[in-house]
Design a protein around this nucleic acid. Sequence first.
DNA 1: GCAAGGTC
Length: 602
Amino acid sequence: MKLIVAEKRSVAQSIAKFLGRSYKSQKLYGVSVYRFNYGGGEAVAIGLSGHIMDFDFAARQNVWTWLPPEELFNATPILVLRGETLKYVKALKSLATKADEVYLALDADVEGEAIAYETALVVKMVNPRARLYRVRFNAVTYKEIVSAFQKPTYIDLKKVEKVFTRMQVDLTLGAVFTRFLTLTVRNSLNKGQFLSYGPCQTPVLGIVVTRELQRRNFKPEKYYVIKAVVEIGSSKVEMSADAKFKTKGEAEAIAATIKRGVVKIAVYKPHYVEPPEPLETVELERRASRWLGINSKKTLDIAEELYRAGYISYPRTETTIYPPTLDLKEVLEELTAGEHGPYALELLRKGFKPTRGDSDDGAHPPIYPTKGATRAEIFKVFGKAGGHAWAVYDLVVRHFLATLSPPALVEKQKIVVSFGKIELSAEGQRTIDEGYWRIYPWERQPEKPLPRVAPGEPARAVEIRVVERETEPPPQMTESELLALMKKYGIGTDATMQDHIYTNIKRGYVKLVKGKCIPTALGISLATSLFQYAPELIEPTVRAKIEKSLNSIVKDGVSPAKLIAEIKLEFSKYYQNLKAKREEIKKALETALYSIQQQSRG
DNA sequence: GCAAGGTC
């Protein structure tokens, strides 16, 4: 028998569908498996739920108060089966005993390689004679799957080493510093509360706190601008000077010279506003946070459910190019059955051209709808969560339709009038063709048309004012901006970025209020201590540095043991720096913890 | 009780 192991249920089912003409689905220990005929014999496909193994410390090393945290730098984590996925392991073992060939059809990324290795270990436990092959496909399509199975290869151990090194490094650093922080203030914590450190969560906190401190330390400065209503022919235009004046006197002196002028520039030029690129996870989260008021964690949860219910494609993807194998026309035809049907029909009739981004994760297509639906249908399927489910589904559908739609066409307008000593200007815009804005209202740009005038026309300023203004602090960090910064700094992956924000919320370091990330007293205190005594732990570039050295395992053949030793040595220095300031840190954190307790009591 | 990464 041939056994095929995929990373998730949906892929196992697709493989059964593509390789067998028909298949039978069955439950084994509560896990779906798919039986079919392939190559003249029996085959069965099973989908896991991601990793089945994990690293942990030995039991006695997990007694926080018994072992000084820094001792973990001398410990070696061990590979263990995960408790949460034991039913998958049971089902896998039971199938593996009867298999003579095992095809490791995990995703074609480094994590998939590691899960393939974990699977191989389990298979070998029960059936050492089974022949193991690794198959790699870049999309779950008939063509890719069939050709992948025609040329099976072997596990790439370098990639496995990279992932296992990351697991050990993250666990060790997380455990050492989490235990240090927690034990430092243990008498001031509530039962079950702890203070965590992580190479992703902590830099995220650092970004949020840095912005908040910039705002708090900001000193506004007054400045003055000149505004006027300018008559040109029979039109009146509100105009302003680009210049900013430090004092009111300077501005008034110049303003007094403004009387009659002449139009120097008058341009009206067409400009295309292109529709968005195909949708990937983080963009979905950012747009839902900004436009729908749904936070990133919730959005990914809802998207996951929409995917499981068959309404949208796999929601964890970094790809922004529709694969050639995806039949966009078919998707449009499917959408004609739902609320966006009329627009889909219009695109089918008029023709369409998809936009294209520049990234392809090699595993999943961009997020697109897989089924047309009405609002009533979604509310029926999702019950209480119907409102949010509809909002996210509607965004995915509209985004998809937008990527196939023509650009919007606007006229960019600019008038500059010269008044001798100073120029006043105005910018405006007029919509010529709404294009994709019709289906994607969130990106619609406002109309603010200027009159048609020509260079050389005389002008006269009336209602000349000097207006007092103040420089403004940087805005509060929105969740959308934070996600963009995490992406820029390489903190987390598409599937985990929202987790790292959520961890900061769970720990009481950050609050998310109306899409804005606001650090708490505890978050500010923790971040400030780290910036002061061990900045290497909290700077936004930490994760990218670790990630880069991990890649050297795959690229340059660096030995994992050597790399782990180097990273431990480096971070044990940071640990010593923190330990030397333990009393200062304790005081700062306790002050914050105390103020929070007072607040919750009062 | 620690992390980050898969996926549910």
